[in-house]
Design a protein around this nucleic acid. Structure first.
Length: 135
DNA sequence: TTTCTCACA
DNA sequence: TGTGAGAA
């Protein structure tokens, strides 16, 4: 079912475009648990697939702990029902978050456009005289 | 080379 | 959420 491909940290890091340091960091956080040959890490094809899922989760803006929570269910949950529920909930939350950000960005852009228009208009009109000191 | 730990942003 | 440095 699974090939017997094995990788070192550096190999896997290179393949996935990340640093070995980051992989060890994820292991430290419990997201991956590679085998050991003595003290050196040995990554299986399964670890590799898992790492790819981690990267995807990151790319979509999920926290490492959220990703871990989801991945942990993969091993325990036979039917994957709980896993799917968690994923659906996470996706909905993240989606709402991104929509809110888009809204905020749109508002900021609109406001900046207003300022740009105002400054542009001010630059077109004659320069104001220096203000006299009151008195 | 790889690992671990501590400091740092 | 990572990186860099130092020691083993």
């Amino acid at each position: 079912m699974s090939d017997g491909s094995l990788y070192t940290v550096t190999e896997l890091a290179k393949q996935l475009g990340m640093t070995p340091r980051a992989i060890r960091f994820y292991e430290d956080k419990g997201l991956i648990t590679p085998q050991r040959a003595g003290t050196t890490r040995v990554f299986s094809a399964r670890d590799r697939a898992r790492m790819i899922l981690i990267l995807r989760g990151k790319r979509l803006g999920f926290s490492l702990s959220a990703i871990k929570e989801y991945l942990d269910l993969y091993d325990t949950d036979v039917t994957q029902h709980a896993q799917l529920k968690l994923l659906a909930a996470g996706v909905a939350r993240r989606r709402a978050q991104l929509l809110a950000q888009r809204q905020a960005i749109d508002e900021a852009l609109a406001e900046l456009d207003d300022i740009a228009a105002q400054t542009e208009a001010a630059l077109q009109s004659p320069a104001p005289r220096a203000r006299r000191a009151a008195g």
